[in-house]
């Protein structure tokens, strides 16, 4: 088996509401590759990408429900694990 991990990705709208989430992804996934494209922001990483509720709340300065992510979500690739504290995308 190779160690190469396949790319997972998350695309959000490029708007003010999504900013704190994008910043949280940057903070929690230092290896993620973040590309700004017309109208949208594409975030990719090898194997796994995490959106952490606590980090988003710190950036936002208020409580944040992980399900609010859906308001600005455009697309994703990978298996999803969503609960109260995180939204995680991964390929094993």
């Amino acid at each position: 088996m190779s160690d190469k991990k396949n790319t997972v990705f998350l695309i959000l709208q490029d708007n003010e509401d999504a900013r704190p989430i994008i910043e949280a992804v940057e903070q929690d996934n230092p290896d993620a590759n973040i590309q700004y494209q017309p109208g949208m922001v594409r975030m990719e990483a090898a194997g796994r990408l995490l959106v952490n509720r606590v980090t988003v709340e710190e950036n936002l300065g208020r409580e944040w429900d992980v399900q609010e992510l859906h308001l600005n979500l455009i697309s994703l690739g990978g298996n999803i694990d969503e609960d109260e504290d995180k939204f995680e995308i991964s390929w094993r």
């Binding site: 455009i74 697309s75 994703l76």
Partner: peptide, 8 residues
């Protein structure tokens, strides 16, 4: 983009 949020 609004439809895509459902699409995900």
């Amino acid at each position: 983009f609004s439809a895509q949020s459902d699409e995900s």
